[in-house]
Design a protein around this nucleic acid. Structure first.
Length: 108
DNA sequence: GTCATGACGGATC
DNA sequence: GGATCCGCCATGA
């Protein structure tokens, strides 16, 4: 299990309507400072991965290098129920992912 | 094993 | 408050 694989696992467990930051996923992988590694991992991520739910600490979406445009990403998130601020950023304050154990009850 | 790079993040200017 | 710089760490050549 490589670091990237752990990142994939966490992202795949990300529920709709929830958002996570690169640094958060990195921390959950045991490397709080490896936020950039998470980004690099998502760059090589498979299609089934909801990597559009992973954004910056600031709540801003990633560059237009993903999903064909950050606007597309925002629309997908809005479709999942993620509130966006008039500032053009996601409302991380209310929809940030709490962790892999959130909603993960006795699934083992 | 070493050098360079990358979808970041925090600190500084 | 925004732009820029440096630091961090895994991955690939």
């Amino acid at each position: 299990m490589s670091f990237r694989d752990e990142v994939y696992e966490l992202v795949s467990r990300l529920p709709a309507g929830k958002l996570a930051t690169y640094g958060q996923l990195a921390a959950l992988c045991g490397r709080p400072r490896a936020s950039r590694i998470v980004g690099a991992a998502l760059l090589h991520a498979p299609e089934g991965l909801p990597c559009h739910r992973v954004i910056y600490r600031d709540g801003t979406l990633c560059c237009d290098k993903a999903f064909g445009g950050k606007e597309i990403q925002q629309q997908m998130l809005e479709a999942e129920g993620v509130p966006f601020l008039p500032d053009g950023r996601a409302d991380l304050r209310v929809c940030q992912w709490e962790g892999p154990e959130a909603g993960f009850e006795s699934e083992d």
